[in-house]
Amino acid sequence: MNPSNYIILSALLFGIGATGVLVRRNAIVVFMSVELMLNASNLAFVAFARMHGNLDGQVVAFFVMVVAAAEVVVGLAIIVQIFRSRRSASIDEPNLLKY
């Protein structure tokens, strides 16, 4: 089996995640889709590390996980905050910033 299959899998997951961000309205699900995209890129990093034979790719993937964790914490706190004031978790609701 060719190791580039991992990369292609990562591309598929990334595309699915992107579509999810665009299609879903529930902020939590949108957030999950973003996490999916991050994970897809992590998979690519790990596969590249293996193909190139050094561990830098894995280290970067590790940092991506750390940053993603921080992002989830803040993002979910914002979602809770929005939900508190608007009683809704839809990202179409906060649409006042427009023409």
Partner: peptide, 26 residues
């Protein structure tokens, strides 16, 4: 449509770019 296009382009681009490149292993 855009998601599918992204997937297609990346699969095609990466596939053709990575084909025949030997992997070193860790």
């Amino acid at each position: 449509l855009l998601g599918a296009a992204l997937m297609l382009i990346m699969v095609w681009g990466l596939g053709s770019a990575l084909a025949g490149i030997p992997a070193t292993g860790l």
